[in-house]
Design a protein around this nucleic acid. Structure first.
Length: 877
RNA sequence: GGGCGCUUAGCUCAGCUGGUUAGAGCGCUACAUUUACACUGUAGAAGUCGGGGGUUCGACUCCCUCAGCGCCCACCA
């Protein structure tokens, strides 16, 4: 045997070269000649800080599958890539590196110099992640790549800010925010992690009351005691009543406040409040218009009010304060087993200290835009977009989560005290703090720009449309800019709303919800039609992959070792949307074997390159495999449409390996079965979105060997297979006696040739005898289905025996299970009987006049429907 | 405190709106091998679908309940 085709497929030799050819041939750009509807996916922009991890590999694979499928179906498919500046993540990363290297922090460097460092860092890492996405085979249009901080997007962010400000949706408010003393910035609610920690829990005497706290250091200024209005124990104290109490630094005049948020069951049912440093207390203070006072400064140190403890760190002061109170005889007890949830910054790791600060907020409750004929708030529009099914979420259970979150949405704090990010386009009058102007240009010398930058998610929220806008004109507002794009028919007009947003369920709130909120408001249309949420990739034990555990699987190492195709398959097959999945090397190795199997089918076909038989002389095996293929095309296409990629992949896998390789290719060793190249071609088209590299490579090989006749230059841009309409109609009607004969024959054959090894019956049917009846294998299938015998592609019998016995008239295998057949017919008759009984009962019931007259009409209807259903089912049997 | 999810073969997981025999991959057992492929083939063993109750002619599937595990949200001082 002479061939240069190696026995094992080597992805390393193939993948990069193919990717380069695709890219240089501009195949990733939406084809302007495509006649189908546009199809768009905005790639969730990975952080610029990152290297590709398995989670990225997951989304790259899924989105690539969607895009390639759409492209092969003739749609103008655009997958728009980009990166995100990830303000807080990047800034803390660069700052940390800086401190490690030079001992200086970003504040030592100052804004300008620090930003230079950041940009240098970004430039470096941006390239890395992009190349890694390429390695996975992503067919995204790099010519349209965007970055959240590039000029156009920055302008878009600024214009949207201005529009929202002018609409009164952005306001400057004095509210309690999560302050990170370590990073010196506010942190969004979503970026906080509550870490459980054992903290001593003290009970102190406070006037006539006992109050409990885990944070005595915040209590200096406490001058309100709050209790539930219905708490009988404290009924004698009236709301607003005042009393004197000895406290940390001497006498204090305290006021009684009654508020329903207090849980009488917890502790003593009485508490004092610290509105400046506690969100709950802040709310109570808001409700009753109470005084509030700052106790702790922005560096986490105590202020003047603490007197002797002034300038102390919290941790340092706490035991001393407790000691002082103990001396005064005010400490009643200490609970050392108390578990407190400490708010910690998800990014920086520092402990969050709530503070009241002036910040920019987005008002989510103010009527903002006309939506479906009514002026509604951002919150209402966002809820409606999903309720009305304009946007669908897969899996649907996340809709509930989405509504729950949206309904409880508070105003969104969007300012951050960071250097890196979009600088807020607001200007403060140096002489008059109440004079604030909003705009891109400075309104005059006496103004200076807000030092703060915007929350990363504020810009990410615009991702679907900001990336599609053209260059802005000098005096564009966001409205004029969008309008012009729509009129000119630019990318925004063509590709927005996008079709699918594919992302991890983790960021449903961070991102998905905010995109819906922002896009509906700014553009007046939904950002995407379908949200497809994938789960987390965990390790084999189900743990999260993390650096500290060192249990991560590096997708690049895997592509190096097993190929991108195998890695992709392992990420999609066996996973379901919204559920976490476990990843381990053996799994990838398994799919590498499958990829190699396909390679060897092709190798076989090329080496033994077909026979002399013409295509119109199809054997039953040919017809069989063809009909199986038709079936596959139908099923798989359907699964693709339903976003059921795991099932689609499994079915193609099953077909290629167990039907085409194990069965059709096996028996074609005995006879020419020249259809193999065509069948293989169609099957690899179906598989192409999953495993783009091997399928393209095989296509090119088959073409080169002239084994397939295709006008397409690339498999990637070839047309999706269409299932043929059924041509052959079975003509046999009631010839069950012939069928019986056939079954007897099958059993005889089994006995004669010892064809089975256990209860299963492997049978070989010759068509000679039944030629007239079963001219076509389809008819055999049809006939056997009528008596409920399942017809499957058979596992061949031992080769020697089967060759000796049947070489001349072997045509098709039919595998029957004797046991199953028996069980089935039994079950069938039982089922029939049951149904008949049931129908009888229902009929009697419906014939009963008393029942008809007395029962509620809907019940009668229901019974009627039940009867109909049962009758239908019986007919089917 | 509210909400959501998971529990199916030794392991990792499919199983959609209730209806043929509960499936796959890996692993395991036996056999095969001048073979397109050992990254192989054939055959096989292995599951009271977490427990209990209910609805139904019929439940892995729907409802209730209990148990274990996990996640998200929330202002328990």
């Amino acid at each position: 045997m002479k061939t240069s085709i190696p026995k094992a497929y080597d992805p390393k030799k193939v993948e990069d070269a193919i990717y380069e050819q695709w890219e240089s041939s501009d195949l990733f750009k939406p084809d302007s000649s495509a006649t189908g509807k546009p199809f768009t996916i905005s790639m969730p922009p990975p952080n610029t800080t990152g290297i590709l991890h398995i989670g990225h590999a997951m989304f790259v694979t899924l989105q690539d599958i969607m895009t390639r499928y759409a492209r092969m179906n003739g749609r103008k498919a655009l997958w728009l890539p980009g990166t995100d500046h990830a303000a807080i993540a990047t800034e803390s990363r660069v700052d940390k590196d800086l401190i490690d290297e030079t001992g200086k922090s970003k504040h030592d460097l100052g804004r300008e110099d620090f930003l230079k460092k950041v940009h240098a860092y970004i430039k470096d890492s941006q390239g890395t992640i992009k190349n890694q996405i390429r390695k996975m085979g992503a067919s995204c249009d790099w010519s349209r790549e965007r970055y959240t901080l590039d000029e156009g997007l920055t302008r878009c962010v600024q214009e949207v800010f201005i529009k929202m400000y002018n609409d009164g949706l952005i306001y400057r408010g004095n509210r309690i925010v999560n302050w990170d003393p370590k990073m010196q910035t506010t942190v969004s609610d979503d970026e906080i992690e509550y870490v459980e920690k054992k903290t001593p829990f003290y009970t102190f005497k406070y006037g006539p009351f006992e109050i409990a706290t885990a944070r005595p250091e915040t209590k200096f200024g406490d001058k309100y005691v709050v209790m539930h209005p219905d708490d009988k124990r404290y009924a004698k104290y009236k709301h607003g009543e005042q009393f004197e109490a000895d406290w940390i630094n001497g006498k204090i005049t305290a006021t009684v406040v009654k508020d329903e948020s207090v849980d009488p069951e917890f502790g003593t049912g009485v508490m004092t409040i610290t509105p400046w440093h506690d969100t709950a207390d802040f709310d109570i203070a808001q409700r009753h218009k109470l005084d509030r006072e700052q106790i702790i400064d922005l560096n986490g140190k105590l202020l003047d009010i603490a007197e002797e403890f002034k300038n102390m760190e919290i941790g340092e002061a706490r035991p001393l304060i407790v000691e002082k109170l103990k001396h005064k005889g005010l400490l009643i007890k200490t609970d050392n087993e108390y578990i407190n949830k400490v708010a910690t910054s998800y990014r920086g790791g520092g402990i969050i200290e709530p503070q009241i600060m002036e910040q920019w907020f987005v008002n989510v409750d103010k009527p903002a835009r006309t939506w479906k004929g009514k002026k509604r708030s951002l919150k209402e529009i966002s809820i409606d977009a999903v309720k009305s099914k304009d946007i669908d979420i897969i899996p649907s259970r996340f809709k509930k989560t989405y509504f729950h979150w949206m309904e409880n949405l508070h105003d969104w704090c969007i300012s951050r005290q960071l250097y890196f990010g979009h600088r807020i386009p607001a200007w403060f009058n140096k002489n008059d703090k109440t004079d604030i102007k909003v705009g891109i240009q400075s309104p005059g010398k006496e103004y200076e720009q807000d030092q703060d930058t915007l929350d990363t998610w504020f810009s990410s929220a615009m991702w679907t449309f900001s990336t599609l806008l053209d260059e802005p004109k000098k005096d564009d507002t966001i409205d004029s800019w969008i309008k012009r794009n729509k009129i000119l028919g630019t990318d925004l007009a063509t590709f927005h709303p996008t079709n699918v947003l594919e992302t991890a369920y983790e960021i449903l709130f961070f991102w998905v919800a905010r995109m819906i909120l922002m896009t509906t408001y700014v553009v007046g249309e939904i950002p995407f039609k379908t949200v497809y949420l994938h789960g987390l990739v965990r390790d084999k034990q189900g743990r999260k992959m993390s650096k500290t555990l060192d249990n991560g699987i590096d997708p690049l190492e895997m592509t190096q070792k097993y190929g991108a195709d195998a890695t992709r398959l392992s990420l999609v097959i066996g996973t379901t949307p919204g559920n976490d999945t476990r990843m381990y090397e053996e799994k990838i190795a398994g799919y590498r074997n499958f990829v190699n199997k396909i390679w060897n089918i092709a190798r076989f076909i090329i080496i033994y390159r077909g026979g002399t038989r013409k295509f119109d002389e199809k054997t039953l095996a040919d017809k069989w495999i063809e009909s199986r293929l038709q079936n596959l095309i139908k099923e798989v296409t359907n699964h693709y449409e339903q976003f059921e990629y795991s099932i689609a992949g499994e079915k193609i896998y099953e077909f290629l390996w167990h039907e085409l390789a194990d069965w059709y290719v096996e028996i074609s060793k005995q006879q020419d079965h020249t259809l193999a190249p065509q069948i293989l071609l169609e099957a690899i088209k179906l598989l192409h979105p999953f495993t783009p590299f091997i399928t393209e490579e095989i296509f090119q090989m088959l073409k080169k060997e002239k084994l397939v006749d295709s006008k397409d230059e690339w498999l990637m841009t070839s047309t999706w297979p269409k299932a043929q309409a059924k041509i052959i109609k079975p003509k046999i009607e009631n010839d069950f006696s012939a069928l019986q004969e056939l079954i007897t024959e099958i059993r005889d054959l089994r006995a004669t040739y010892h064809l089975s090894y256990s209860q299963k019956l492997n049978a070989v049917v010759t068509t000679k005898k039944y030629k007239k009846l079963f001219q076509d294998q389809e008819l055999v299938v049809e006939a056997l289905t009528k008596v409920k015998i399942q017809v499957l592609p058979s596992k061949p019998v031992k080769r020697e025996e089967f060759i000796r016995a049947h070489t001349s008239h072997f045509d098709v295998f039919i595998k029957l299970s004797a046991k199953k057949f028996k069980q089935q017919s039994q079950r069938l008759s039982i089922e029939k009987e049951q149904l008949e009984q049931y129908i009888e009962v229902l009929e009697k019931k419906l014939a009963n006049k008393e029942f008809i007259q007395n029962a509620p009409p809907d019940i009668v209807e229901l019974e009627k429907k039940k009867l109909q259903d049962a009758q239908n089912k019986l007919r089917k049997l």
